[in-house]
Simulated assay, not measured.
Amino acid sequence: MARRRMVYEGKAKILYEGPEPGTLIQFFKDDTTAGNGEKHAQIEGKGVLNNRLSELFMTGLNNIGVPTHFIRRINMREQLVRAVEIVPLEIVVRNVAAGSMSKRLGIEEGTALPRPIIEFYYKNDDLNDPIVSEEHIIAFGWATQQDIDDMISLALRVNDFMSGMMMAVGIKLVDFKIETGRVYEGDFQRLIVADEISPDSCRLWDIETGQKLDKDVFRRDLGSLTDAYTEVARRLGVMPRNTSSGSGPKLVH
């Protein structure tokens, strides 16, 4: 790893120069943060689980024609991805009121929404990633109207895919965040899903009990984050169901 050139380091991942032009190696760290980095901890094995789960989701999306930056998993913590020009927006899709939506609007957490609601947040840690409107996005040149339409279309397709996958294993997809990146093909550009999709970027509740199986476990001190993520991986077939907690991730290849 020391011989690679680091391109970017975020809270939970590091990007290194890839082996071929137009590629990057995405490394998943065990670092876990909440409150825009105000709360921080090292959760052993979290990076391994997120790498494998993100591979599962991104591969599934690629297979149904939703374009992503994912190429292949390299090892337990790394994956090869396509280099993209990241759009400085987080796209959040909400199926159930929770988190900041409940706080902002006074809606009881757990209230089912009449339809998926899409929100945009400007990616800026110094400003705590503020929510923005489509008017802001266009006015400040972060994306065009066509880009916004494409991001909404991608987000709704990801929502359909992820909701079905989670429901099949008894998990409710409450909300999730994606990022998109621009890729250029000759004179044309298009947007594809980038970054990661994992329990770090989703709210996942057990359908029957309401147990939280996502980063809210860490945010709200509700127990072991590793156990929560491991349960998601078990249900989705990424880990054998008889793996004991505390023994470290043993992933199914």
Rank of each mutant, 00 (worst) to 15 (best):
residue 1 M to R: 02
residue 2 A to C: 00
residue 3 R to I: 10
residue 6 M to L: 14
residue 7 V to S: 00
residue 7 V to Q: 06
residue 9 E to N: 05
residue 12 A to D: 10
residue 15 L to T: 04
residue 19 P to R: 14
residue 20 E to Q: 14
residue 20 E to P: 07
residue 21 P to M: 06
residue 27 F to V: 14
residue 27 F to P: 01
residue 30 D to V: 07
residue 31 D to I: 10
residue 31 D to C: 04
residue 32 T to Q: 13
residue 33 T to F: 12
residue 33 T to G: 11
residue 34 A to Q: 09
residue 34 A to S: 08
residue 34 A to E: 06
residue 35 G to I: 03
residue 35 G to T: 03
residue 37 G to I: 08
residue 39 K to E: 13
residue 41 A to C: 08
residue 43 I to F: 09
residue 45 G to Y: 09
residue 48 V to W: 03
residue 52 R to M: 03
residue 52 R to V: 10
residue 54 S to P: 08
residue 55 E to A: 12
residue 55 E to Q: 12
residue 57 F to P: 01
residue 58 M to W: 06
residue 58 M to K: 14
residue 58 M to S: 08
residue 59 T to M: 15
residue 61 L to P: 02
residue 62 N to P: 09
residue 62 N to H: 13
residue 62 N to V: 08
residue 64 I to T: 15
residue 67 P to L: 03
residue 68 T to W: 09
residue 69 H to C: 00
residue 71 I to C: 03
residue 72 R to S: 09
residue 73 R to W: 00
residue 74 I to L: 15
residue 75 N to A: 00
residue 75 N to L: 01
residue 76 M to Y: 03
residue 77 R to C: 05
residue 78 E to M: 15
residue 80 L to V: 09
residue 81 V to M: 07
residue 82 R to D: 01
residue 82 R to V: 08
residue 84 V to H: 06
residue 87 V to W: 07
residue 88 P to H: 13
residue 89 L to H: 02
residue 95 N to W: 09
residue 96 V to K: 02
residue 97 A to Q: 08
residue 102 S to Y: 12
residue 105 L to M: 12
residue 108 E to D: 04
residue 108 E to T: 11
residue 112 A to K: 13
residue 114 P to I: 00
residue 114 P to T: 01
residue 115 R to N: 01
residue 116 P to R: 01
residue 124 N to S: 12
residue 124 N to I: 04
residue 125 D to R: 06
residue 125 D to S: 10
residue 126 D to C: 00
residue 126 D to V: 05
residue 130 P to Y: 01
residue 130 P to V: 08
residue 131 I to A: 13
residue 132 V to D: 00
residue 132 V to E: 00
residue 135 E to T: 02
residue 135 E to L: 03
residue 136 H to M: 11
residue 143 A to D: 02
residue 144 T to A: 01
residue 148 I to S: 14
residue 150 D to C: 03
residue 152 I to V: 15
residue 154 L to Y: 12
residue 155 A to K: 04
residue 157 R to P: 11
residue 159 N to M: 03
residue 161 F to M: 00
residue 162 M to P: 07
residue 165 M to L: 14
residue 166 M to T: 01
residue 167 M to F: 13
residue 167 M to N: 15
residue 172 K to Q: 14
residue 172 K to E: 15
residue 175 D to R: 02
residue 177 K to Y: 03
residue 178 I to V: 08
residue 179 E to M: 10
residue 180 T to P: 04
residue 180 T to W: 03
residue 181 G to K: 01
residue 182 R to L: 06
residue 183 V to G: 02
residue 185 E to C: 05
residue 187 D to F: 02
residue 188 F to C: 12
residue 189 Q to A: 11
residue 190 R to F: 02
residue 191 L to K: 13
residue 192 I to W: 07
residue 199 P to K: 15
residue 200 D to Q: 15
residue 201 S to F: 04
residue 202 C to D: 11
residue 205 W to K: 13
residue 212 K to E: 15
residue 216 D to F: 03
residue 216 D to G: 09
residue 217 V to R: 01
residue 219 R to P: 06
residue 221 D to F: 11
residue 224 S to Q: 03
residue 227 D to W: 11
residue 230 T to V: 08
residue 231 E to K: 11
residue 231 E to A: 04
residue 232 V to H: 05
residue 235 R to W: 00
residue 237 G to A: 01
residue 239 M to W: 09
residue 239 M to F: 05
residue 240 P to F: 02
residue 242 N to H: 13
residue 244 S to I: 09
residue 247 S to T: 15
residue 247 S to C: 02
residue 249 P to V: 10
residue 249 P to A: 15
residue 251 L to V: 15
